[in-house]
Nucleic acid binder design. Structure first.
Lengths: 122, 122
DNA sequence: GATACCAGTTACAAAAAGGATACTATGCCA
DNA sequence: TGGCATAGTATCCTTTTTGTAACTGGTATC
């Protein structure tokens, strides 16, 4: 029996609207081209600004902007090291681990999708 | 003992690179402002062009473009109904269900993140 | 014939994102 | 003093994305 409202999991239109808002909240925080990629990279351990820039292939200007936003949202910490020359380490916060499921789900899907695409070629 | 490579789950740098590529593949297909939102809406059942436009609050121009890309990627089907005036229904494909985990993970995270943000206000 | 509905498209404008390059400031080393 | 490395910033420009408004074409209705 088909359901009248616009969602499967939620029971009411109101819950449905809220579910969509949640999705959009997530997209506001980790949407865009870089944030999830940066988190994915940092899951391997803290990195310095330059290293991160090289690793991700992202220009310093954009990287700086992304990291600031991620710091505001509590996803990374910024630590200035007392070295010469000064270096800055970026590290994921424990809170960022709550995104694991999202990232892993996207890893998995991308892998399967690529296999599907390759299969279709022949 | 800290690991030398840049990932936790994968064992080698090569696997790590591939994991990141998978993530980026996924972002290529469902990244951007609208695609996951549209899928989320369509999970409640097929909708006509206008309905979808109103429901998502997206202009016809963008909606048309997004739907074309999603059709190419095998995520939605487009069916012209023989009605006056002609209407077109968009429906998720079975393949799009493979994105469930991604969407649900993002729903959940957005919900929790919002609660965290509200908690921090006080 | 005027009006209204549907599914889009077209043309134009605005905004956001991204990239390249050069630059600041600090301090080491030779 | 000059050269190098670090972490960014500043400036300029191009590309991409998004939005608005008007419009096409087909059909029904008043």
């Amino acid at each position: 029996m088909p359901n009248k409202n616009r969602c499967l999991t939620p029971a009411t239109d109101e819950e449905c609207r809220r579910a969509r808002l949640s999705l959009q909240d997530t997209l506001d925080v980790v949407g865009g081209k870089w944030k999830l990629v940066l988190i994915s990279i940092l899951r391997g351990g803290k990195l310095k600004f330059r290293e991160l820039s090289r690793e991700a292939g992202i220009s310093p200007r954009i990287l700086s902007k992304e990291l600031k936003e991620m710091e505001i949202n509590g996803l990374v910490t910024r630590t200035v090291l007392d070295t010469r020359p000064i270096m800055v380490e970026y590290e994921l916060t424990p809170y960022s681990n709550t995104l694991s499921e999202v990232i892993i789900a996207m890893h998995e899907w991308g892998k399967k999708h690529r296999q599907k695409m390759i299969g279709q070629k022949s």
